[in-house]
Structures are given as C-alpha cells and as structure tokens.
Amino acid sequence: MKVFTRWFGFRFAPDSIPAHLRRDPLAVVSSLIIMIMILSAIFAPLLTSRAAEGLGEPNPSEKLAPPSAAHIFGADHLGRDLYARVLFGGRTALGMGFLIVFGAVLIGAPLGAIAGYFGGWLDEVIMRVTDVALAFPPLLLAIAIASALGPNLTNAAIAIALTWWPWYTRIVRAQALALRERPFIEAAHVIGVGNFTIIARHILPNVLSPVIVQATLDLGSAILTAAALSFLGLGVQPPTPDWGQMVSTGRIYFPQRWWYVTFPGTAIFIATMAFNLLGDSVQDANK
C-alpha cells in the first residue's frame, strides 16, 4: 500500500466516503454481507469439514441427499456437500468479479484518459470504437468471445471484461476533459513533464473516485454475468465449483431436488444484490 501511494501519489479511498456511508443503513448491511462473503471465501477450508468435496471430489453414497444435519444445504448429483460447493464457489464468483472489473478498468480507464487528455482525432477514434463496442449486447459479445477463446475461467473473465471497458472509458474521458484545463496540469506541462507521465501521475489519480463507484456497482453484475456464462457452459468448467454452473446442472433435478438450484441461486442473488446496494450508496455518498 505504501509503495502504491508513493508511486501513484494518491491514497486509495477518498476520505469523504466512509463518513457518509456509516450513516446509511443499506450501505452498512451490504458491506457487512460483502465482508462475510469475502472472508468465507478466503477461509472456506476452515468453515467446512468437506473441503475436498467442495473442490470437486465425488462422494457417490450421498448422491442428491436432502438437507440434513450432515449436509445443511443437501448434496449434489455426485454426492458432494452443497454447502462446501457454495462456499468454494464464492471464491470463483468473487475472483471472477474482481478480475472482470479490474480488467475492464485496466483497459477502459487509460483509453478514456488518453481520449480526454489529447482530444482531437485520437479522441474521435477511441470514442467511436467505444460506441461500436457498446452497440453489442454485452452477454452476446461475451458468449462470442468466450466460445472463440475456449471455455475456462480466465477466458470467461477476459470475454466479459472486453464487453465492459467502454463504460470506464466514458467516465474517465469526461473527467479527463475537465481536468485537462486545470492549472496543475498546465503547470506539469510547463515543467516539461511528458504527456503520458501527466496522464499517469496527474489525471488518473484524480478520476479514481467515480471509477471506484462504477466498479463497485459493476461487481454485482460481473458476478451475475460470469454466472450466466457458466450456466451456458462457456465459463468455469467442472469440477471447479461455480454458482452458475451449479444452477445449470441442478436445474434438471428441479423441483424434486429443489436444494440443488436454490442454494447456489440464492448465493448469486445475495452477492449481486449486496454489491449493487453498496454501489448505489457509494454513488450517493460521492455526489
């Protein structure tokens, strides 16, 4: 963190946000849920005695066992404990979510800063490409890219990130356009600082707040989209635990074995909901 601050010259979160958020009950609840999810994903092996099953080892004798004291969420078609599967699935979901959003910011933010800072034809070219990218329905584009790259976790994340970067480009461009006229940018220019150093040191750190807001909002949808891609068989492949893929397999057994889809489905719902609510609150607090 210290190195980070020294390099880029900014602190990670704007000071004003937490104070506002503490007064917002929705924000408190949603951050608590997110915190619990993150912690349970990290410490998943400590929270279940069936870690091996969670990671994919079959247990044929317990096939499709209903919820009980031994399996509080029941068991899946290979007899694996669903509680363990959902717990480890959280790692995939959150990992994918962060990977997607991080990738989208990594592509989108520099492009937006370049477009806004330089203006002119470069701006035109970048923004027209963004418009084209935005014209495709995101899931459709992700499906196309994922099937072209081959189905696995990384490719799914890349595919979704490739459909999302334009939003960050737009946000950052608007900010960069306003920042470009600020005296401290001119001051850096007069010192002789190069254009790309100005973008990295003086523009990007100052567009961080709106990007964080958008990223928080997007995390929910990223998890949802990743689950959708897995549901369609283009995302995470078995035996890696993943909520979308669990719902996909489980739906054949519905409604007789209702637990198979219900628990992973609820997990997707809660995760998406929590990130969306937090995103909304952060957005309101930032206004």
Binding site: G9, F10, R11, R182, P183, F184, E186, A187, A188, I191, G192, V193, R201, H202, P205, N206
Partner: peptide, 16 residues
C-alpha cells in the same frame, strides 16, 4: 490550483 491535489510535497518538489 497549481499544485496537484493528490501529490505529496515530496513528489511535487521532486517532479522537475
């Protein structure tokens, strides 16, 4: 206005 708000004095003075 002329000093970058996010940079520390160290970075402002060392920039040139």
């Amino acid at each position: 206005l002329s000093l970058s708000p996010r940079l520390a004095v160290r970075d402002l003075v060392s920039e040139p």
